[in-house]
Structure formats: structure tokens, C-alpha cells
Design a protein around this nucleic acid. Structure first.
Lengths: 113, 113
DNA sequence: AAGATATATGCCGATATAGGAATATGAAGC
DNA sequence: GCTTCATATTCCTATATCGGCATATATCTT
């Protein structure tokens, strides 16, 4: 069995660095394909293909402007990643709490001496 | 050129659903390989291989306990994802602000009538 | 030492991939 | 209608992948 398709979900779509770069550029505001090509100095077909993947998972939207196509980012689609990551913030916080308890314990022991 | 290696970075490592599942299980506390196998009903070699990938990108740590190996999650390694995602929160907030302005404008126009 | 248990590794096959080059589609202007 | 500009698609190749199965390694038990 090969790796899951890049279009399978947001996690797979985001795994490719060029696609993250494209989203980063679009985070500054909507842009035409050619502008992205210039900004990132990637080949035009490369950018179009990556945009297709991003579009299929809903991370970008496009509208026509004459013969150009303007793409914009759809940040709400990153919600699944947020949710997933949030779980690990809890783990981190729990760890911090334990560390806090440990420091307090150390302090208490120091006072007793 | 094929897709980047799963061990290339956290983003690629996390793209595989089984690996996210393993991390999710470990988020509840450290566990031996066999326990993960039972919890997720994956094959033992499968779990071992996924753990290797996760280990190579630093997302898990392991310690020996007799003939068992206890794995734990290393949530600090998710920081790059957090950072990357944070940018899009700003995009979202900016959009919300604009929406707020728009609503205020609508309201103002309503009052004038 | 021999067997049992726990985990890791090696080999194999099928497949989706990313990039390059060429080409197709589509809209604009003359 | 033809040409030019902007973008999308197709064809190609090399490669890393994930899973299954078998096996190696390591530790515990008796």
C-alpha cells in the first residue's frame, strides 16, 4: 500500500513544503497564479498542480478575473489541525503542572532544612 | 521526484493517520509497544515502524523496561506546526475584523434610515 | 541452556507521488 | 479569425512509501 493521496486530507496536503509556501504567500492576501510563480520562483505547472491539491482539500478558493485566476486562502479548513494540536497543548500543560508541583516540593524541602 | 520522506519533518511524519493515532494514544500516558498494538489493533511490525518514524523526527522518546520498550510523546516537537498554524489565526482574525467592520457599517446605515 | 515473550528489522509488491517538458484550454485584443 | 497572454492538463520517470510476512535481536523464565 502506498502513502495516502495528497488530497486525502489537510494533513497530507500540508506535508509538501511548496504547498505550505504557497499558502504562506496567500496568507498576505489573494493573488493570481503568475504572482505566486514569481514570488516563489517555482515553475508555473508546479504551482498550478499544487493549487489543485490545495483546492481539492478546500484550503484555497479561486475566482476568475479575466484570463487570470485569483486564489485566496480558506483558513477555516485548518480547523482539524488546530483541534488535533490542541490535545497536545493539554499534554504540555499537564507536564508543566507536574513540573510546578515538583518545584514546589523542592522548595518545601529546602525550607524544612 | 517522489514525495518527501516521512522522516523529513514533523509535517510529513504526521500526515500518516496511523501515526497520529499512535500519538493520540500516547497522549494519555506512556505505553509499551504491545499495548499500542492492542489499543489500535494494528500489526506489531506496523506499530514498530511507525514508532521509528516518529522517533526519528523526535515526536516520541523510548526507554527500556525489561524486554519492553516504553514510548512517550514529546509534545514540544509540535512547536513548528503551532507556529505555522498561528499565522493563519491572524488571517482568520483579520477576516473577522473586516466582517466586524462590515456589520458595524450595516448597522450604521440601518440607523440612518 | 533452552524456551517464551517483546520488539525491531529485512525483503517484497503495489502505487501515489513531484518535477520537467510539451501541450491543451480559455480569455483578451486586434 | 488569429495571436498573445494566463493557467491547466497530460505524459513521463524515479523514488519513497505502507503493509504483510518472515526473521533477527534482546530479555525474562525455568
Amino acid at each position: 500500500m502506498p502513502r495516502a493521496a495528497a488530497t486525502a486530507d489537510v494533513f497530507n496536503a500540508i506535508a509538501e513544503p511548496s504547498r505550505r509556501a504557497i499558502l504562506d504567500v496567500l496568507a498576505g492576501g489573494e493573488m493570481a497564479v503568475g504572482e505566486i510563480v514569481d514570488d516563489l520562483s517555482l515553475s508555473q505547472p508546479q504551482v498550478s498542480k499544487h493549487l489543485r491539491v490545495l483546492s481539492e482539500v478546500g484550503l484555497v478558493r479561486s475566482r476568475a478575473d479575466g484570463r487570470r485566476r485569483i486564489y485566496s486562502v480558506e483558513p477555516t479548513r485548518l480547523h482539524p489541525m488546530h483541534e488535533w494540536l490542541a490535545k497536545y497543548e493539554h499534554v504540555l500543560n499537564a507536564r508543566m503542572d507536574r513540573m510546578g508541583d515538583y518545584l514546589i516540593e523542592l522548595q518545601r524541602q529546602g525550607e524544612q532544612q
